[in-house]
Every structure is written in C-alpha cells, then in structure tokens.
Design a binder for these strands. Structure first.
Length: 773
DNA sequence: GTTGGCGTATTTTTT
DNA sequence: ATACGCCAAC
C-alpha cells in the first residue's frame, strides 16, 4: 500500500529491520527456505517441523522486503481454516498491508476466479456449487432415465467413479474406452449426461471447480497470462495431497514466473482415495530442474518416544523420500497401549484417562483429542463423555450445513439466484408437499428433455405441457410464481429479510411448526440460525449477496466453522486431524478390519496409505499418546470379535507400555504376507492378556483412575432404565417409564410422555433413552 | 395421482 | 437412526 511509496533508501532501511524480525526465531533450514525467493522451491518437511510457520514467514518476508506486493501473492492451502490462520499470522508479521493477497483452498480460490471469468466459458457468476449429495441426485436422475437399476448400481458409487475419473482429468469419451466391469460401464454410460445436466443447471461439482479453470486457461490464454502476471509468487501447502487437476493448475500458474514454492511431506499423504497423487511431490524436482529443495527434519512438537514410535510406523512403508526426523525435546512418557473388552469399555477407559489427566496433571480439556478411523466410532465415545459430563466437540459427521432443514432452505435460495439449478428444484418442488408428485415431475422432465430445455424453462412453459392435468399445471404455476416473485426482489431486499420471507411463504416454517416435536423445534431454530448467519455474512463482507453466500457456504467444512469456544475434548477422524496438534492424543479402534480397514489390507498401496494415516495420527501428539483397541465391537448390526491391528505388531515396542506397565509383546510375523495364517487372536495367544492383567502393578507412569477411588461405571447403559424412572428421548422429550419387556436387542420400554404425546413403545436398541433426574 | 406408512439395507476417509 | 423403495389408501 502507501508504505511502498517511500524512497528507495528509506524503504530498504525499514524493510531490513522488518525482514530481520521475520527471520528471527527460525532455524537455519527454515531461514534458508524463507530467503530463497527466486525460482522453484520445494520444502520437504516432517511433522511438527514448522512447515506452515515457514510458509507464513516466507510470505511475510516477501512483503516486508518489498520483493512482492501483497496482491502479487497467492497461497493455496488444504483447508479454509489453514488459510485463515496463515493470513492472520502474515498480517501480524507485516502489519495491515495484506489486502489483495489471495489465500484459500484450491476450491474456494478457483471458485472465486470462476465468478469473475466463468462467463468466458459459458457460466454465469451465479453458478451453483453441487456437493456430493446434489451430484448424487443428478446421477440418480440419469440412471432412472436409462432404466438402470439403482439398487444394483448405487448413485453414490457411480458418482464416485465419475468423480474419480474427473479427478484424473479423464473425460467422458476417454472414460468410455477404459471402463472395465459392469459398474464402470454404467458410470461411463451416464457420465456424458451427468456433465450435460450440470452444464444445463449452471452448476459445478467439486471437481469442476478445478477442471473448469483449466478449460478456461486453455481456451483463453490471455486470461491465463493475466493471472500469471498478477500472481508472481505462488505457494502451495500440503503439496502431497494435490490431485492431477491441482497439479496442472499449479504448473500453468507458475508457467511464467516460476516462483512456485511447495511444502509437503510424502509420508503424510492420506488422500489418494480422493485422487491425490503422491507422484506430484515425488517428481517436483524433475518438473522443475532448477528447484531448490530444503528439508525440515527437526521436530519441535513431540517427545522423543512419540517420534520414535512414529518413525517405526512409517519405516514399514517402502516408497518415500529420504528423511530423518530428530528432536531435542525430552524423552517423555511411554506411549500407552490400552486394551478394552468392547467399544463401550474402550470409550470408558479413554474418558477416565482424560478426567484423570485433567484432575491430576492439570490438563485443560482443550488439550485432548480422540482420533478414530470412521465417523461411526464417535457414538460410543460421545456416550461415555456425556455420561460423565466431560465437555466435547465432534468434528465431521453431520455439520450444520449438511442438515436437511438447512439444505432445504439453501436449495430455495439457490433457486432464486440460479433458477436453472435442477437439483435444487427437485429438492424443494414438492417440499412442503404442494401436489406436485412423482408423475408430474416425471412429465416435466420429459417435456424439458424433448424440447431441449432446462427444468426451469419447462416449468415456465408448464401451460404448454398437455400431458399434465390442469390441477397439476396450477400447482406448478404456483411454485413458479413463488420463486419468480422472490427472485425479482433480489436487488431490493436485504438477503436475510428476503430469505425469511421466502421460507415463510414457501410454507417451510409452517411445516416445521406443524408437529410440536422437539426435533422440529430444533430444526426451526437451526433455520433461524441460518438466517442470522446470512445477516452476519452480509455485515462482514463488502460485496456480499445471496449468491456469494451460497458459494462460500458450499465450500465450508465444519472444521472451518468450528470456533474454539470453551474447553472441550476434540473428537474427530484421523483425516480431519491433519495439520493439528494436541498435548494428549488417543488413537482408538486399532483393530484389524477397522484400522487398517478390511478392504485396504488387500492392496499394498492402500495398506501403506492406512499406515501413513496412523503416522499422521501419532505425530499429532505433543506429550502423551494412547493407543487403544477393543476385543469386540458392534459393526454392521452385530457384535464382532476383533483382532488387534497389525500396526501394533509392527511398531517399536521399546517405547510402548501396556496399562500395567509391561512391555508390549508382539507377534511380528502374524501379518507377514507369506505366513498365510488366519488364526484368530485368541487361538494364537490365549493367555496373553490374562497373564498381563493378573500381574501386580509395577511402576506405572500413567496413573490410572481406577486407583483414584472414583465410582465405577459398569459396561451397560441400558440397565439404568427401569419402570418408574424418568427418561429423555430425542424426539418426544421427557417421559416416565411405565413398564419394560423383552431382553437384549429386543428390550422395549413403554414410556409416557405427557398428555399431548401419550404412551410410546420404544426399542432400547434404537431409541436413545437417557435417564434424567 | 399423491401421500404416507411400512419394511429393508445401511457404515471409509472429503474439497 | 436414517434413507429409500414399494404398496395401499385417499
């Protein structure tokens, strides 16, 4: 900004001081990475080595030394949260002059670019962004049109295949040639129609947000050149997780100036399932033969033992860049291994350990993270934490913007700015019900198809559709009026007021008030919260509109909304934990078939990815790391007995202690490829655990809560429910148990919820009754 | 033709 | 618990 109007001498003096300040507090390697501002740079950085910090300081350094102006810098990150934090830190380092600097995820950055330039390839700036759910709807419509059995060929699966093709930049024609097997052939069959439907809806799916810019750059070299000149400095974080399209984009953007700086760790590549290509980072040096490569190998995060454990995990993998991690941190505690009887028992052991460390060692609840492989595992952990009133937050799973009631409102709003959005029309055209059933919708679609119109255009001409009864035409006409009326008010009313009026007149609010259940009340509150969110968004952003709100919101994940409110234990998948760190980390569910997931054990490359995931999880821990597994677990509706994970047989046992302080005893050969052993854990080593448990406690470093005299909670929650007790139900609210019948899975309670709702018979297995009072 | 109730299958990770 | 398909009643 103005500051750069100083004379050359004045500037260099001020710059020098600022630059020196930015370099202070970095180690020699980091400093070198920051100072290498000319030409391609790759920073290969282990976990906890301060790679994001290095990137941040490099950007600040560029600005402080006047090498680049903020608007000449773009940084692409993996999450919105990472971008936000990086931006804040750069601002703190250089003062306020960062306006015009682009920082965000690939997706959000290129969505923004498409908003400006998309008209050149036929997209209006109000394009809708389709999430997986919307895309699935489009696929389903395509399958139905072709009379393909959606039971056998699930829209989800088909979409995943199309998405993975798009990820690798394989177009419909090419895909048709390479499709193998029934499912792929069906995917190839609907792929062109899927693309056409999206185009007609003026919509982009997640993959398009990367592919369309490529198309734009290829068809309009002048546009590419404009951005190449604008962004003289390109930074990419988490480069190991870029896919083909992201790779192509980065090469194109870096094509002119070649000032590309990438940061990554091949050992932390965990998104291959999403098309991430580890080859991108492995081949950086051959892509840019004048690249400077800097290794950051010193770990500042974890204790020596944790690092040693992590090292022993990753060393099992064959393909990786040479790197040797080291730390000067203290040795720290042993990594603790805890075995549990069931997932409930596991959750309880974790919960007790957390409370114990909280009370005795003074850890804040913020210091804890419990990591697991699948979202479904959060349930039992939540139950245990809730029971003991330990505050927690769950990241992932169902986020605010994924709730049905929210998606309904968003669909209405999307229709206002982009009436061609067919997925949104289908979502809300008959919700709340207004007499436009399947048959009418089918006829609308057929008409659109025959006339080559979008769905909305067909609706506009509904009077011309003679297959429809007058009644149906009227119903559609009323819907059309509802949307058109509010679309015409886009310019005049404030976005939040308009949204409020629309959902009122659409009958959404009445629908939610129709039945007075707690569930509906919660939904109604959520909708109101969404309206407030719109108001807030408009207040915070300069050129905000419903259109920009919708596009921004489509790319939010709930990690991005999650503001750190209060002290809570964090529960999340291992994937979601990437880039984070916590003093105390639990990795739960270390069992064969779960972690590693069963399907991943076939393929060497997939097994290696699971192992990297374990590595990522372990290296999140700063001071204490707990590994847990259960001997049995409810999965797919039944209790299954579990063998502990092969990963536990591979790790360096010298840094691990069991709960009673023993060394970890391993069966190193158990999963060797040629052993062919299918022995169950029990057959193999029947007395292993009993021996351990019967042994007297030796010097135990981790103090266990069983010795603290606290109440023991037995491994059954449902026993608490008996005739006479008061319980709470998620839908019906509070009630009183009148009687009980049946046992085990069939156990049923008759509960009286007051005069309005009356008596309900509830299966304990499904209804989550919570005892109150 | 539309709506709502019932039975059945469902869980990998995500921008 | 939830989503979806199928079937019977309005």
């Amino acid at each position: 900004m103005r500051q750069f109007k100083l004379t050359r001498d004045e500037r260099s003096l001020a710059d020098e001081e600022a630059a020196q300040e930015i370099l202070d507090g970095l180690n020699p390697q980091q400093r070198e990475a920051v100072k290498t501002t000319d030409g391609p740079v790759m920073i290969i950085a282990g976990p906890g080595s301060g790679k994001t910090r290095t990137l941040t300081h490099r950007i600040a350094y560029l600005i402080a030394t006047g090498t680049a102006q903020p608007h000449e810098i773009i940084a692409l990150t993996f999450t919105n949260k990472a971008a936000r934090e990086m931006k804040e830190r750069v601002q703190a380092l250089v003062g306020e002059e960062t306006r015009g600097m682009w920082m965000g995820t690939f997706h959000s950055s290129f969505a923004r670019l498409l908003r400006r330039e998309g008209d050149k390839i036929g997209y209006s700036k109000d394009f809708s962004i389709y999430d997986t759910d919307d895309s699935k709807r489009i696929v389903r419509a395509q399958l139905n049109r072709r009379n393909i059995d959606t039971q056998r060929f699930k829209p989800r699966t088909i979409h995943r295949m199309i998405s993975s093709a798009k990820n690798q930049m394989i177009g419909p024609a090419e895909y048709e040639d390479m499709a193998r097997g029934d499912t792929q052939e069906k995917a190839a069959e609907v792929y062109p129609g899927y693309e056409k439907a999206l185009e007609q809806a003026n919509a982009m799916d997640f993959d398009d947000l990367l592919l369309k810019p490529i198309e734009l750059f290829e068809n309009h070299p002048d546009v590419l050149e404009k951005y190449q000149q604008r962004w003289r400095y390109l930074h990419i974080d988490e480069y190991q997780d870029t896919n083909r399209a992201q790779y192509v984009l980065s090469r194109k953007l870096a094509g002119g100036h070649r000032n590309i700086c990438v940061v990554g760790d091949d050992a932390q590549s965990i998104y291959a399932f999403r098309g991430a290509d580890i080859g991108n980072i492995l081949s950086f040096q051959s892509d840019y033969d004048d690249a400077t490569v800097i290794r950051l190998e010193r770990n500042y995060r974890s204790t020596e033992r944790i690092l040693q454990l992590a090292d022993s995990i990753i060393e099992q993998n064959e393909e990786q860049l040479e790197k040797s991690l080291w730390t000067e941190n203290e040795e720290g505690d042993y990594v603790a291994l805890m075995e549990a009887l069931s997932e409930k028992d596991e959750a309880q052991k974790i919960e007790r350990t957390i409370r114990d460390l909280h009370l005795r060692e003074g850890y804040s609840y913020n210091d804890f993270a419990v990591l697991y492989r699948t979202n479904a595992q959060s349930r039992s952990l939540e139950d245990a934490l809730r029971r003991e009133n330990v505050p927690y937050r769950v990241i992932g799973g169902m986020s605010f913007y994924e709730r049905k009631e929210i998606k309904d409102v968003l669909a209405y709003l999307r229709l206002l700015v982009n009436p061609n959005d067919a997925a949104s029309i289908r979502r809300v055209i008959n919700y709340p019900t207004r007499g436009i059933g399947d048959k009418t919708q089918e006829r609308l679609i057929r008409f659109a198809q025959e006339e080559g119109l979008s769905l909305w255009q067909a609706i506009e001409r509904v009077e011309d559709i003679d297959t429809l009864s007058t009644r149906a035409q009227n119903a559609v006409g009323k819907f059309r009026f509802l949307i058109a009326k509010h679309a015409s008010k886009l310019g005049e009313m404030s976005p939040d007021d308009l949204a409020q009026e629309l959902i009122q007149e659409a009958g959404l609010l009445d629908e939610l008030r129709k039945e007075h259940t707690q569930e509906n009340l919660r939904r109604w509150e959520n909708v109101q919260e969404l309206i407030s969110a719109i108001a807030e968004y408009v207040g915070e952003n300069e050129d905000a509109s419903i259109s920009t709100f919708l596009q921004d919101v489509a790319l939010l994940t709930d990690q991005d909304n999650e503001f750190d409110d209060g002290e809570r234990v964090t529960l999340m998948t291992l994937h979601a934990a990437k880039g984070l760190e916590f003093p105390v980390v639990f990795i739960a569910g270390l069992e064969e078939g779960l972690f590693p997931l069963s399907h991943a054990t076939e393929e060497q490359s997939e097994l290696e990815e699971e192992r990297r995931l374990f590595y990522v999880g372990a290296t999140r821990a700063e001071e204490r790391l707990y590994l847990t597994h259960a001997r049995s677990r409810y999965r797919y509706g039944e209790r299954q007995s579990c063998t502990r994970s092969r990963f536990l047989e591979e790790i360096d046992s010298s840094v691990v202690r069991t709960e009673v302080g023993d060394e970890l005893r391993q069966k190193k050969d158990r999963f060797k490829a040629d052993s062919g052993s299918t022995q169950s854990y029990d057959d193999m080593d029947p007395h292993y655990y009993r021996e351990n448990l019967s042994e007297k406690k030796k010097t135990v470093r981790q103090k266990k809560s069983s010795s603290s005299g606290r109440r023991v909670v037995y491994d059954e929650g449902q026993g608490e429910i008996a005739p006479g007790v008061r319980v709470e139900h998620s839908k019906f609210g509070e009630g009183k148990v009148l009687s009980m019948e049946g046992e085990g899975d069939k156990a049923t309670a008759v509960v009286f919820f007051g005069n309005e709702i009356g008596q309900k018979k509830l299966k304990l297995k499904y209804a989550q009754l919570r005892r109150v009072g």
